[in-house]
Design a protein around this nucleic acid. Structure first.
Lengths: 219, 219
DNA sequence: GTCTATACTGAGATAGAC
DNA sequence: GTCTATCTCAGTATAGAC
């Protein structure tokens, strides 16, 4: 009673608070996992609850809705991505930083992370755009990547004929490219080789580097 | 009565039969449209019925389930794609035929067709793989495209360092690339230019054609 | 064959005991 | 805060009249 008005130091978290946060992380992890495997619509709150090992009702003490939960997963993913990008700042050229970011993203997906996936589901996209935090994070990341693209063009390491906006969206699309899942499921190409080829194809395409001379003779 | 045993010429279709087929086409068209807009799971049979202007129950006289209906849409799409590929046989090189097919697919999508979309939904992919006709068509198309890829490599017009399987899946992924939708929604790049850049980026990548000499000096 | 009406299921969300 | 039990609603599929 006497302590009610005493200013408590905000530093130390109670055991219960810690437990709560640990569980919340577990929920986010489980959702991320299921999202990567099943996709947005087919993943039910029952699925998540079972994966975490918690009652479905309890999920709603942490997140007010399925959309909010998924949104939180995506926000965390975007934050991590920006962090990874910040750590790539040591690389010399913008081109290297772009390649590094794509490589990082693909490796994350191989490790079970959900793709950035604005692509996957129209309904999900609409839902996400209603969440302020998500939109803010996405805009910040897009700003960072756009700046990289401009720098790389100035370096002369990106095709100047392509629009910046085109390159930005293409970059996102490569991060979410389903080719990764198809090839991994196929199983005939080792993971590292898949990533190498995807990065190479993003920047150099699937065509031969130099136009083949034999082609002219053929016609 | 007397005509019951007489062999009727199978040639002429009754008015009712024609009507039935016309309506079936309309159902497939509407489903295709909604599929492109909303995606598989969010699209309900009610939506389809409303779009066609027919009672929901009637849909089940044409297709035994939602899955079967969607499967029929995809089969039709694959057949059209193979037809388009056949018409590209007049082009001189395999590389040109590949480029032409990608271009054709992207233009179809601009015109409202659904992407080939094995990517979109995991649940849909599983469902489709249970439909014999779909799997057959997909295998045939894949065989055709794989042959093209081998030919193009022989021409020297595709990067020989990339696995054939990688190129095949990448080609599919480019056909379904969400970049198209993002850019179209953005509205700042004309449709024709979007397609041009997507085809160019698929074969030549987003990197500069020749490695910039200035880059060396920079480090 | 097409319509209206309805059965049935799955899933998001809430209520109330502990 | 977590659990069990339940509400509500949307969506697939079917039944039955015409």
């Amino acid at each position: 009673m006497s302590s009610v008005l005493a200013p408590r130091p905000p530093a130390r978290k109670s055991f219960r608070e810690t437990q709560f946060e640990v569980r919340e992380e577990a929920i986010l992890d489980a959702t991320n996992r299921l999202l990567a495997i099943k996709g947005y619509e087919p993943m039910s709150m029952d699925d998540i609850a079972a994966e975490v090992g918690v009652a479905k009702g309890s999920l709603y003490k942490h997140f007010e809705s399925k959309d909010a939960l998924v949104s939180a997963v995506m926000v965390r993913l975007l934050q991590r991505t920006r962090l990874a990008l910040a750590e790539l700042a040591t690389l010399a050229t913008a081109r290297e930083r772009l390649e590094g970011l794509l490589r990082w993203t693909l490796q994350e997906r191989l490790a079970g992370a959900v793709p950035h996936l604005p692509s996957t589901s129209q309904a999900l996209r609409d839902s996400l755009l209603g969440h302020r935090l998500y939109v803010d994070e996405l805009l910040q990341l897009s700003d960072d990547v756009s700046a990289l693209i401009r720098d790389a063009k100035r370096e002369g390491s990106l095709n100047a004929d392509l629009d910046d906006e085109f390159i930005l969206y293409t970059f996102y699309a490569r991060s979410c490219d389903p080719t990764l899942d198809f090839l991994r499921q196929g199983g005939s190409i080792p993971d590292a080789r898949i990533v190498d080829q995807m990065v190479a194809a993003c920047f150099n395409g699937i065509g031969a580097a130099a136009p083949a001379a034999s082609q002219e003779a053929r016609a």
